[in-house]
Design a binder for these strands. Sequence first.
DNA 1: ATTATTTATCGTAATATTGCAATATACTAA
DNA 2: TTAGTATATTGCAATATTACGATAAATAAT
Lengths: 110, 110
Amino acid sequence: MGLTKTENFTDQQNELATIAKAIGHPARVAILQHLLRVDACICGDLVAEIPLAQPTISRHLQELKAVGIIKGSISGTSVNYCIDATRWREVQNQLNGLFDTYVSDQDCNC
Amino acid sequence: MGLTKTENFTDQQNELATIAKAIGHPARVAILQHLLRVDACICGDLVAEIPLAQPTISRHLQELKAVGIIKGSISGTSVNYCIDATRWREVQNQLNGLFDTYVSDQDCNC
DNA sequence: ATTATTTATCGTAATATTGCAATATACTAA
DNA sequence: TTAGTATATTGCAATATTACGATAAATAAT
């Protein structure tokens, strides 16, 4: 069917999944890493950095924007993209919320 | 095309994406949360907990197992699943490796 | 006005994912 | 051996994702 049954899960579970899914593509990881590395707003030189066609990169950018971890602002004919600081930390906390649930003494002997 | 061009990216980028993708489904988040909550090996009562058909849950379990964050051991006619402690921390570190790259003073005014 | 530049959107093709019913497999119990 | 129980696999059908060429839209430069 290809259709995820989101109604069966909690908002938190769906949100966590949506976030993870957004990061779940190497091109989007590469985009995030580039935005982090240049530590500034960056225009569309992502197309030069990442070996994918311009429309494809544009799509990946939209997907990252959809979950709020990056934002873009128009500057003349180009667009400046950057990490959304607040959302970035929020997302990190939400992921760590899942990972920190694990306590070491619950190691089983499977 | 539907085919991710993994050859264009580094191993690290691909691995990070693969991990995130595995977590990127609410059913798999629910499975992980359940495994964490019961803080022990758990037999396949996941089917009772999560409102999806048994084959569907089995598939999600295989996907989580494929990235190594859970492991299963046969115990008679049932299977015990649990978090793989080492891999769990490894994955958390890898994700935090990405998120910690962000330093607050790089806030741009987009 | 025309042209160039940059980014987004549309249309399309190919592959992937999700989900379930049916079935297979593998062990347990009688 | 036969029946029961638990999990995995197979075989679909439907939807989603990925990617790219073509094109649109919007500004900048001449």
